[in-house]
């Protein structure tokens, strides 16, 4: 029997893409709560009530010391065990932009006990907001983008980025190799937008459930978010956007799963 899945989006001082991530989960059918990190730290047990977790973008704690650093430190020190437990019971998680930066610094991505990837300053050293073309890896095990690799419509192969620190860097070339081998590379930029290794824009953990990416799928929930929708025929902008489909994939995957703890 299907039921209404529950999603939690974690915010802190300086997260500011939280309302659109809440909207993404909600449009996809999840009952979604926006919860302050400090409240979660004070009461980590509430994580067990949720089927999906979102790490919103923004400038958590001003991105002082490094993008997403302080938020990641707080999570590593106070919440990591509870997040591991959630992951281990199959809870899909997504981190976009600042959320991705947090996921790699907590080790939740690419997965493992220590940090093996990072997001460095863009190669040009500057914040950039634009829509970029991406390509979804056919070998990816990612749950959130299941079915995306067959996408041929160039207009749908676009996502917005807005970051100063999105250059994907790994601790050693072996890591890249492992990511490729295990289907953990989810999407790549079609061109070099920020200097990322292998133009990697997003990765997942080996289970395919924990997903992080620099682009903002939560900013592409409607075709009217598309940068040139006024040129597209109505037929070209029919159906769910790629951004919404990511949330739909995740919410659907837990809808039929047994209720969480």
């Amino acid at each position: 029997m299907s039921r209404t899945p529950r999603a939690i989006v974690i915010r802190t001082a300086g997260t500011n893409c939280d309302s659109e991530m809440v909207r993404g989960f909600s449009l996809a059918g999840a009952k979604t709560d926006l919860v302050h990190l400090d409240r979660l730290i004070a009461q980590p047990s509430i994580l067990a009530e949720y089927d999906l977790v979102g790490f919103a973008g923004g400038f958590s704690y001003g991105d002082d010391c490094g993008a997403g650093r302080v938020k990641a430190v707080k999570i590593r020190e106070r919440l990591i065990a509870d997040l591991h437990a959630a992951r281990d019971r199959g809870v899909p998680m997504i981190g976009a932009c600042n959320g991705f930066q947090v996921l790699v610094q907590t080790g939740l991505l690419p997965g493992g006990e220590i940090q093996t990837a990072a997001l460095a300053s863009n190669a040009r050293g500057r914040f950039i907001d634009e829509w970029v073309r991406v390509r979804y890896e056919p070998t990816s095990v990612c749950l959130w983008t299941a079915g995306f690799a067959e996408q041929r419509d160039e207009n749908a192969l676009m996502l917005p980025i807005a970051h100063g620190e999105g250059r994907f860097v790994v601790s050693s070339d072996r890591i890249t190799h492992e990511l490729e081998q295990q289907g953990q590379i989810v999407l790549r930029y079609q061109s070099d937008v920020n200097g990322s290794a292998g133009n990697i824009a997003g990765i997942c953990d080996p289970t395919g459930r924990v997903f992080g990416l620099m682009p903002h799928p939560e900013r592409f929930l409607s075709w009217q978010n598309h940068p040139y929708w006024t040129r597209l025929d109505p037929a070209e902008r029919a159906g769910d956007t790629p951004g919404l489909r990511m949330f739909l994939n995740a919410v659907e995957s837990v809808r039929h799963a047994p209720a969480s703890a």
Binding site: R219, L221, P227, W229
Partner: peptide
């Protein structure tokens, strides 16, 4: 324009730079 996040909150439907090349 490209240094400003002109799309946060997800509601910017006609952007400051338009057209297929942005």
């Amino acid at each position: 324009v490209r240094q400003y996040d002109h799309e946060v909150q997800g509601n910017t439907i006609i952007k400051p730079l338009v057209g297929p090349g942005g």
